[in-house]
Design a protein around this nucleic acid. Structure first.
Lengths: 211, 211
DNA sequence: GTGCTGAATATTTCGCGAAAAATTCACTAT
DNA sequence: ATAGTGAATTTTTCGCGAAATATTCAGCAC
């Protein structure tokens, strides 16, 4: 029943800079060489500190991996959110673009940044890491829920619980958010994910107001 | 440019009994001990023939695994179809039950028959086996398409292409058909798959006629 | 006490010969 | 020719010591 509230042990305040430094160096290394091929000694060398010191900021290597994945998820979320910055488009169009952009972003990352995608898969596979994935999923659910709320207010969508619809839309497109599945789903020369547009259309149709 | 049309080499006609015998013995063994732990020698012993003779009926061990998986898929399809035998229920209800029963059946198999589910995953992972999975998926798509057709005729569903809707419904529930994903999706004490009912409801709502 | 080091220890991975298994093939029987 | 055998051959897996790596810890500087 003692203190130890923080995910990672170590310095309380002054160490945030160091923790971030470790995080950024690790992300670079993981991106280049992969999680497995990057050693704690590599990270120590890159940050010009001793291996032992890394453990003052992260419990172990997995914890660094998890922090990198969380940062990576936050970056993906920012990327997905950029499409929502501009105010134009109907709620339905905005949801469609949110999902299409998100899946498109994931496909781009799989081509361009396979090491980090692989890391995310690896980290999210064990119980310690699932909550990172869960948070990321919840971010999508909330982003969609906000647009659904707008759609209800605008009279485009029938009355419903926006949060539940957010969860439903993410659940109905879940396979498209899974790298392992997405590998098989991409098709054609452009590599667009099969049936995604039709799935979105049917879901949005189910949400429509039919005034 | 010669003959060799059949998937498996060997006898043309008279050998069908032997091929089936190998298939059934293998299925039993795989179910009990798993694909990896079952040797060709085991199968030979079980069928009272020599190891070499197995190769007259199947190209290799993978081919036996594929045949077992295909048989397993056919059995799953029969199981799923039993819910459709009785004529009652609206098309929407029948589609809902088809999907719920199918996913429920998969969950039961994962608990009760994990070795065969694992085998299916393994076999369908490589290029030789994906077409078996593809066929199984197409069976579901067609089963749904038939019900959609009924729904259109009955005036319950708006006019649309039943085949495309079949593909769409399967795509929107794809994660629920993937054992790897389903492990994470089951929740609660009853282990029911999260959000599946809501997904189906929203999709069917999108299909409704709104007369 | 805080931040850090580097050697000491614990764990995991790796290389490689041995054993097991998959696959082939020369051969027998009908 | 067809069905089948079983030993020979190729491929994969396994066990285990060595090397690499992760993690801990006693101690140093401030």
């Amino acid at each position: 029943m003692s203190a130890e509230v923080r995910e990672s042990n170590g310095p309380a305040e002054g160490g945030e800079r160091t923790r971030l430094e470790i995080l950024e160096a690790s992300m670079q290394l993981f991106q280049h060489f992969g999680f497995g091929k990057t050693t704690m000694a590599d990270i120590a060398r890159e940050t010009a500190m001793s291996p032992g010191n890394l453990y003052r900021y992260y419990r172990n290597k997995q914890a660094i991996g998890r922090a990198v994945v969380e940062r990576y998820f936050r970056m993906s979320e920012s990327q997905m959110a950029t499409g929502l910055m501009l105010p134009g488009g109907s709620p339905a169009e905005r949801i469609r673009e949110l999902i299409r952009n998100g899946v498109g972003h994931l496909m781009t990352e799989m081509d361009h940044n396979p090491r980090l995608v692989e890391l995310a898969d690896f980290i999210c596979a064990d119980p310690e890491g699932v909550q990172s994935l869960q948070q990321h999923i919840e971010w999508k659910e909330r982003a969609i829920a906000r647009e659904v709320e707008r759609g209800i207010d605008a009279g485009d969508f029938r009355p419903c619980d926006p949060d539940e619809v957010g969860r439903t839309l993410v659940a109905a497109t879940r396979a498209y958010w899974m790298p392992m599945a997405l590998v098989h789903i991409r098709c054609g020369e452009d590599g667009r994910p099969a049936m995604l547009d039709q799935v979105i259309d049917l879901l949005l149709e189910g949400l429509a107001a039919h005034r």
